[in-house]
């Protein structure tokens, strides 16, 4: 079965979603990701969706869920690279991804996570 690869970068996990996901694949990612967070004791998750041309309410909910689950597992989630057309559509759809942090690109998202980690470690 096809899977979306999860990369480990230090204390963070990076997921780049490049395919138009069907729902099962999205559910699978949710499961894999929570497993990996625990396995590697990750402190942050970056989800890069800059290649996604469509985010509907199902995928939106999946992203919110991942962020909420990750938070329970003590990892912060940042979603990066939402395209303008996708952002406009999400707003129109009524989906604001409440509780999910966003950044323009992977670099910014990474900096955000590092800052947070540094602040916690004081």
């Amino acid at each position: 079965m096809e899977k979306i690869p999860i990369l480990k970068m230090g204390r963070f996990l990076l997921v780049t979603i490049q395919v138009d996901m069907h729902d099962q694949l999205a559910m699978q990612l949710q499961e894999d990701l929570t497993d990996r967070i625990v396995a590697v004791r990750a402190r942050g998750v970056l989800i890069d969706i800059s290649s996604l041309e469509v985010v509907d309410s199902f995928i939106g909910r999946m992203i919110s869920n991942i962020a909420a689950m990750a938070r329970v597992l003590d990892a912060e989630t940042v979603v990066v690279g939402i395209q303008p057309a996708v952002a406009i559509t999400l707003v129109e759809l009524g989906l604001s991804l409440e509780g999910v942090r966003t950044a323009l690109n992977v670099d910014r998202g990474m900096a955000m996570l590092q800052q947070q980690l540094a602040a916690e470690q004081g």
Partner: peptide, 15 residues
């Protein structure tokens, strides 16, 4: 933007 809107709407209803 128009493409994305109709595709997203189609996805919702198809589901």
């Amino acid at each position: 933007v128009e493409q994305t809107k109709i595709v997203t709407a189609a996805s919702e209803i198809a589901r």
